[in-house]
Each structure stands twice: as structure tokens, then as C-alpha cells.
Simulated scan of single mutants.
Amino acid sequence: MFNKDKVNLRRKSNRMYMTILGGVFLGLAFFLTSGFVFEEKVEVLSSPVNEDIKVSSTENVVINRWIYDPKTGQMEVIIDTGHLKNEYDTIDFEAFQRSDGSEVDTEVVFQYEDHYVVRLEGLSTDYTQVALDLIGTKEVPEEEEAEEEQSGRSILRTLYADYREVEEASIEERESGEYISYTTDLIIEGIRENIQTVEEDIKDLKADSKDAEERIASLREDKVYQTDEEKLQTDNDINALEVKKNETAKEIERLKMDLERFDDKIQKTEQREREQLLETTD
């Protein structure tokens, strides 16, 4: 006769194994169909804000601000193009989004001397990164264009925004005078950030100089109890510290000149704002 207890136990074990096996298959199916395993890992690609971005051996551009408005799906970029207008007849912008590779509508909504306020529209809700091409165009005579087989239009630099890094803020419509003040405030804000960085650098350098002085004093005291050979090595160490101290002093003076230059730039920027605002009211 069959042992009923053994049969029931075997059936329970089979059910347990089938349950576990079913769970494994369901989990595997989820990962394979969800795309979780194969999701592309995209590295962060984001251009710095309020920092010089090299365009050529002599020219830099600065992104004063780059914001994304999630409510409207728009981006606004304020760019200081430096002296590029002296080299190119026109400055244009083209943008593309990584999500589907499509071109994004761009419009220069305001230009204030070398500063451009560029509006980007038509972004996908699931955009990941945006590339903004800075394009310079030079007028080239037809005969030269034919000989060189090239036009005077070239991409000077590609700037990037990443959804993980870009600032989210509301994009407002402004009048010309408001854009002048808005752009001026951003310029001055960037300058003041640079001033703060330089002041911190000066503070650190002064601390290094003080440490060097204390180390030199300590080494000179040690010489009293040293042999001639040890004194020679100590003198070399002192000389090296003196050289470093002098170099630090020169660097501090250079940074102080930068602070004066930044202060002068703020005053000129504010003066330019006042002049431009007067022109808009005439």
C-alpha cells in the first residue's frame, strides 16, 4: 500500500519547486521586456556656466545662464560671445536633442552687444541632452568660395546641456529694457562669483606663505645643532621655501590685479546698462 504521508509530502515539494521556478521565469521575463538590463547609460555632458569656454586660440565664450522650463518645455541660454563679432559677419545658433536626434527650434529673442539670449523650443519631454552649435559666418567672395570649395560658415563650438545638470526655472517674456537689466544682472553675478573664487585663492596662498615662513624659521633654529653637512641640506631646503614664498607673493599680486579688473568690469557693465536703458526710453 502507498504511504499517504509520503505522497502528500512529495506533492507539496513539487508545488513549492513549481512556484519558485515560476517566479524565476516571471522575473526574467520582466527584465527582458522592460529594457532595464539594456538601458543605455549616458555620461553627463554639460558645458560649464560662468566659465571661459575656448572657441579659438584667442577667443572664449561664456554661458551666463542655461535654464530649462519644464512647464513650457523650453530652454533659454544667455551667451557672452566675446569678440567673435569682430571676426564673423553673423553669429547663429542651431540645436539638436539626443533623445531622437532631431533639430530643435532656436530663436535669438534678444541681443545685447556681445550677449545673445537664445530660446530653444520643441524639446521632447524625455530629452536627455541638448547640443547647441555656435555658428560663425564670414562673407566669402564667390570666386574664393569656388576655389576653396568651402563656404564661410563654420561651427565654432558646440555647447551642451544635460537634464541632470541644467537649472530648472521659469522662462519669462521680457521687454528690451528688462532684458538689458536681466542680462546685466547675470553678467555681474558671474563676475562676483569670480571675485569670490579669487579671494578664496588669495586666502589659501597667504596661508601657504605663512606656513613657509614658519617652516623657514624652524629650519634656521635647527641649524644651531646640526653638522656642516646637515646645515648644507637645511640651507637648500630654506632656499627652496624662499623661492616658493616669492612665487606665492607674485601670484597674490597677480590675483589682486584680477580683483581690480573685475571691479572695473562691474562698474563699466553698470554704466553700459544705464546708457542702454536711456536709449530704449528715447
Rank of each mutant, 00 (worst) to 15 (best):
D5A: 15
K6H: 11
V7G: 08
N8W: 12
R11C: 07
R11V: 13
S13V: 13
R15D: 08
M16V: 08
M16D: 08
Y17Q: 09
V24D: 08
G27I: 02
L28A: 08
F31K: 02
T33V: 08
T33Y: 15
S34D: 00
G35P: 01
V37M: 14
V37T: 13
F38S: 15
E40R: 13
E40Y: 09
V44Y: 04
L45A: 10
L45P: 03
S47P: 00
S47E: 00
V49D: 01
V55R: 11
V55P: 02
S57M: 10
S57I: 09
R65W: 00
W66H: 09
P70W: 07
K71F: 05
M75A: 03
T81C: 09
H83T: 11
H83S: 12
K85D: 12
K85L: 10
E94G: 06
F96R: 11
Q97E: 13
G101P: 03
E103A: 08
V109D: 04
Y116G: 03
R119P: 01
A131R: 08
L132M: 07
L134S: 12
G136S: 02
T137S: 02
E142H: 03
E143C: 06
E144I: 06
E147I: 06
E148R: 08
S151P: 06
G152P: 01
S154P: 04
S154R: 08
S154Y: 05
R157K: 13
A161P: 02
D162S: 07
Y163E: 07
Y163L: 10
R164K: 09
R164E: 04
E165Y: 02
V166G: 00
E167Y: 05
E167N: 10
A169R: 02
S170T: 12
S176V: 11
G177A: 13
T183F: 06
L186W: 03
I187W: 09
I191S: 04
N194C: 04
Q196S: 15
V198H: 10
E199M: 10
D208Y: 14
A212H: 12
E213L: 06
R215M: 08
I216P: 07
L219R: 04
L219G: 03
E221N: 14
D222M: 14
K223L: 09
V224I: 11
Y225C: 04
T227F: 13
T227Y: 10
L232M: 12
L232N: 08
D237R: 14
I238F: 06
L241P: 01
K245C: 03
N246H: 10
N246P: 02
A249W: 04
K250L: 15
L255R: 14
L259Y: 03
L259G: 02
R261G: 12
D264K: 14
Q267P: 01
E270R: 10
R272V: 05
E273R: 12
E273W: 00
E273F: 01
E275M: 13
Q276L: 14
D282K: 15
D282Y: 15
